[in-house]
């Protein structure tokens, strides 16, 4: 069994797709930045060193047929500040529907639900401050 080595480039961005129902007046909900109950403590992201915000968006929507209001980002360094390792998890097809070599997992598993919530809230703040990566904002303001 291969031991996964956590990412260490603090500057690398990690892209996150946010469901449209989790965006209000352009602001994503912090629940999009922590795992759901079904995620087994791991949050899926796409590595900025291996893909771009728009390619990640297209893979999620056109490739996997899932809904997204857009791409937001946190960095590896921001995750590590929260005590969260980011583990590379490239997906191949088969068995997956679509290959995703940029896929990675932010590991919230060591933390109970409330602490995962707190970490997600702080990461969300970082993502909001960074701004929506894709689609780009229109000149008239938030697109959602």
């Amino acid at each position: 069994m291969t031991t996964l080595v956590p990412l260490s480039d603090d500057e690398e961005l990690l892209f996150r797709q946010v469901h449209p129902s989790f965006v209000r007046d352009g602001r994503p909900s912090s629940q999009a930045f922590r795992p759901t109950a079904k995620d087994a403590g791991k949050l899926s992201v796409s590595r900025g060193s291996l893909t771009t915000p728009d390619r990640a968006f297209k893979l999620h929507t056109e490739g996997l047929g899932l809904r997204s209001a857009g791409t937001w980002a946190v960095s590896v360094g921001e995750c590590r500040e929260e005590g969260l390792n980011v583990l590379p998890d490239p997906l191949t097809s088969p068995p997956e529907k679509i290959a995703d070599p940029a896929h990675a997992l932010v590991d919230f598993a060591p933390y109970p639900k409330n602490q995962a919530e707190a970490r997600g809230a702080r990461l969300a703040r970082k993502a909001v401050d960074r701004g929506k990566m894709h689609p780009p904002l229109s000149p008239d303001g938030p697109s959602e």
């Binding site: 129902s21 989790f22 209000r24 602001r27 629940q31 759901t36 109950a37 809230a121 969300a124 909001v128």
Partner: peptide
């Protein structure tokens, strides 16, 4: 606050304060 649904059927209100993120 910003009010969102959750997949579990809860309702979620979020605030970003000067020093705190509140859910």
């Amino acid at each position: 606050p910003y009010i969102y649904p959750t997949p579990e059927g809860l309702a979620r209100a979020e605030w970003s304060g000067t020093s705190w993120e509140i859910v």
